[in-house]
Design a protein around this nucleic acid. Structure first.
Length: 208
DNA sequence: CAACCGATCACCT
DNA sequence: GGTGATCGGTTGC
């Protein structure tokens, strides 16, 4: 794997908004023995500390939110609507809350395994619309990468010991667009959603 | 201990 | 564009 660099833990030891912008274009990697999975991060949302009423951290430090208040660069995985998992990365040092929700990936490698994990026919991978179904949306990308709370919550995504990692392949993203976050009711007006403008794999209909 | 609610998706019209 | 599925975490009684 040439030209691919690890992302240091200090990358995540910053404000969620800063981490959000710089995460765009980075690569999420699942190292499973037979089929490594890779996807480029194209859409994220920042969730702030106890002041951000839309953030789980607003509930304070509980067993559920411990990862958000813990060290930076850890996977915070939660279960939502009784159906889906969502993947976040913790930001800021221990004792301070903040995280970034991963909302969409552009699939790069292991697409057939992702389709299998999602129960999709591999025939659909021949079209862009079909490939978009793999990882466009927080619940979808978790299913494609086999991400669950039981398996991944608390993992250090900057550690070479982890099978779930964030890497930098040198990709230079285009223009970053900011909008309000999706699917929340509280603090819904804050512009904390970030995505690569024009990228096909951004969730929803909006890509520019 | 019971009730409530949600950082979603797939399928329906 | 509308809505049901489905369940863990939190809160209030």
């Amino acid at each position: 794997m040439k030209g691919i660099k690890r992302v240091p833990e200090s990358f995540f030891d910053r404000e969620p908004r800063t981490v959000s912008r710089e995460l765009l274009g980075k690569v999420l990697i699942r190292n499973s023995p037979h089929t490594p999975l890779r996807g480029r991060i194209v859409e994220v949302e920042a969730y702030l500390g106890t002041d951000d009423l839309a953030a789980h951290a607003a509930a304070g430090l509980t067993a559920r939110t411990a990862v958000i208040f813990g060290p930076p660069g850890r996977a915070y995985v939660y279960f939502i609507y009784g159906v889906h998992y969502c993947l976040n990365f913790s930001c800021l040092p221990s004792g301070e809350a903040g995280c970034v929700l991963i909302r969409a990936l552009e699939p790069l490698a292991g697409l057939e395994a992702m389709a299998a994990a999602r129960g999709m026919d591999t025939d659909r991978l021949t079209t862009t619309a079909g490939r978009k179904q793999l990882t466009s949306g927080p619940g979808r990308l978790c299913q494609a990468f086999g991400i669950t709370r039981e398996r991944d919550n608390g993992k250090n995504v900057t550690s070479s010991n982890s099978d779930l990692r964030v890497m930098d392949d040198g990709f230079i993203g285009g223009k970053i667009k900011e909008t309000a976050r999706i699917g929340i009711r509280k603090s819904a007006d804050l512009p904390l959603r970030y995505f690569l403008e024009g990228n096909t794999f951004v969730s929803g209909n909006r890509s520019g």
